[in-house]
């Protein structure tokens, strides 16, 4: 009896296997034909770093404040600056990014208050010589020309206006009720920091501000 049962179940399973592979034969392959097709990179993906320019004047947004260089955990950024005698504004004379050490943590982008540096969805920057991985200011500006961005200050102002109106309702809807105390603490810490940067910002602001 056992033999018959084993044989029938064996045959059944063999046929089942054939059926499975046959079905798969007609499915659409999951392969992405890479050089011909590319993934759509997400908005906030952390790929190659670019320097952003003002879309109107075409000048770099960077004020050479050095915050990004200080924030960088691996000291990938080197900046030298000069002061314009007329406008009394700083501008960078040298801005290099050493992508061989950069770990794409995004801290530089968070530190910058002037929408000047951003991690983008761009990739494909392989080179045949390692020295080419030291990006100069002009190159960083060039690859950042087509990057669209939302100005931080404007966004913050908008949020500030919007926040008091639909304050409580939005907050309870967007913040999950089951948030741990730790997370809440973190949130408030970040908010404090943000408050320091842009003074006079109300403490209860929408969670969307944290993304900046």
């Amino acid at each position: 009896m056992g033999l018959v049962k084993e044989t029938t179940s064996g045959i059944y399973n063999l046929l089942l296997g054939l059926w499975v592979t046959f079905k798969h034969l007609f499915r659409k392959p999951v392969t992405l034909q890479y050089p011909d097709e590319r993934w759509e990179m997400p908005e906030r993906s952390r790929g190659t770093i670019v320097l952003l320019s003002d879309p109107e004047t075409g000048e770099l947004n960077c004020t050479a404040c050095m915050l990004c260089a200080k924030a960088c955990p691996v000291a990938a950024i080197t900046i030298e600056r000069k002061k314009d005698p007329e406008t009394k504004k700083n501008y960078p004379t040298l801005f290099t990014l050493d992508t061989t050490v950069c770990c794409y943590c995004g801290l530089c982008e968070q530190a910058c208050n002037f929408d000047a540096i951003k991690l983008t969805g761009k990739y494909e920057f392989s080179v045949s010589d390692k020295s080419e991985l030291l990006y100069e200011m002009d190159f960083l500006q060039e690859i950042g020309r087509d990057v669209k961005y939302v100005k931080k200050k404007k966004a913050a102002k908008k949020a500030k206006k919007a926040a008091p109106k639909k304050d409580t309702g939005e907050k309870s809807a967007e913040k999950p009720a089951a948030k741990t105390a730790e997370e809440k603490k973190e949130d408030s810490n970040e908010e404090d920091k943000a408050k320091d940067k842009t003074s006079g910002e109300p403490k209860e602001k929408g969670p969307e501000d944290k993304t900046e």
Binding site: H24, L25, F26, R27, P29, V30, T31, Q33
Partner: peptide, 13 residues
């Protein structure tokens, strides 16, 4: 081709 499509790949393209 058959092996590739059974594994949801393209095979030589």
């Amino acid at each position: 081709k058959v092996s590739a499509h059974m594994q949801q790949r393209y095979g030589p393209m």
